[in-house]
């Protein structure tokens, strides 16, 4: 069956309306809305930042889909709730301060977002959270598509969320990223992007996705050559900053230079950044709203998310 993107909403470091990117010294930060206007005070008082970003994006995506309560909630997060995890870890590691708050433990768990969304929507349906490093969002998308094939009348809320904290930024810089940054690495990022998917027709189809297990990596290039007219397509490449990556280069060679966007220059590098690319692709195919100038005959977007020497994936979205 054809699966469509019915609505989407992203909180990201990129403001497409004024072409502004929230990035300083290699640290991308989401441009966040005023949550007081979106969520009520009682809901907000205990919520961590990642939770506010997730719930807001989920709520907006659902609102834009006629407020239909979904039949499944599937989220993806590579690193989970880092702020609360860091807070709790710091406290248990400090022999002089053993006062630990239960809230930070409760909210450190990866499925906090999916659970809170179900609570907020009073939604008792299927609820799952994927955490497979840079393939987390792809696997959540895979589950969503499998679910819609099992139950064609359903609609699915799908989201990718990761947060960047000061602690994580500092540790990753110490680990290896400071050095990488001098070689063109864009920087660490974060974001929350949510979508509703179903069989109900809309402008954008989730045409295909290729994950490594469905074949070897050469399948991705072969697929593009066989199925995509690259003159009418855009490639959203997940290279985190012109780094050497033979897999990435192989795919880029199939497109003219002006049809390639390195999407991580807008959102930074984070495990579920392909959910930002998924949002960007949907925006592009819906008429390029607030996006870099593009011709109107754009029919296909290919998202290629590769990590040098690690995982690879392709997502193909097209106009219906």
């Amino acid at each position: 069956m054809e699966i469509y993107i019915n609505s989407s909403f992203a909180i990201s470091p990129y403001d497409s309306s004024r072409n502004f990117i929230g990035m300083k010294d290699g640290r991308f930060a989401c441009i966040e809305p005023d949550y007081d206007n979106i969520l009520d005070a009682r809901q907000l008082r205990r919520m961590s930042r990642i939770m506010k970003m997730a719930l807001t994006a989920a709520k907006k995506a659902i609102d834009d889909n006629g407020n239909i309560n979904p039949d499944a909630i599937i989220t993806a997060t590579g690193l989970g709730c880092l702020e609360d995890t860091g807070t709790f870890l710091t406290k248990i590691s400090d022999p002089d301060n053993r006062m630990m708050n239960p809230t930070s433990f409760i909210q450190s768990i990866h499925n906090t977002m999916a659970g809170q969304i179900s609570l907020f929507l009073r939604n008792t349906c299927y609820n799952n959270t994927f955490t497979q490093t840079s393939l987390s969002f792809e696997h959540a998308l895979f589950d969503a598509v499998m679910l819609l094939n099992e139950k064609p009348d359903n609609s699915v809320l799908l989201g990718g969320i990761d947060e960047l904290t000061t602690l994580k930024f500092d540790l990753a810089e110490r680990l290896h990223l400071a050095e990488k940054r001098s070689n063109g690495y864009y920087g660490q990022g974060e974001g929350s992007a949510f979508f509703t998917l179903s069989g109900h027709k809309s402008k954008v189809i989730v045409k295909e996705f290729i994950l490594p297990f469905m074949g070897d990596h050469s399948d991705i290039g072969n697929y593009i050559e066989a199925k995509v007219d690259t003159n009418d397509a855009i490639l959203l490449s997940g290279n985190p900053g012109n780094l050497q990556d033979p897999d990435d280069e192989t795919i880029k060679q199939l497109f003219e230079d002006d049809r390639i966007i390195d999407y991580k220059q807008y959102c930074g590098d984070y495990p579920t950044s392909s959910s930002f690319a998924f949002w960007m692709a949907n925006q592009l195919l819906n008429g390029g709203i607030g996006m870099p100038d593009l011709d109107s005959d754009l029919s296909d977007v290919i998202i290629h998310h590769s990590y040098p020497g690690n995982s690879q994936s392709l997502i193909h979205l097209c106009r219906s």
Partner: peptide
């Protein structure tokens, strides 16, 4: 006041602190 069981646990920490 409309508090819940997680608030109760936070108050436990408060009282200890």
């Amino acid at each position: 006041l409309g508090l819940d069981s997680i608030d109760a646990l936070e108050i436990v920490v408060l009282l200890q602190q």
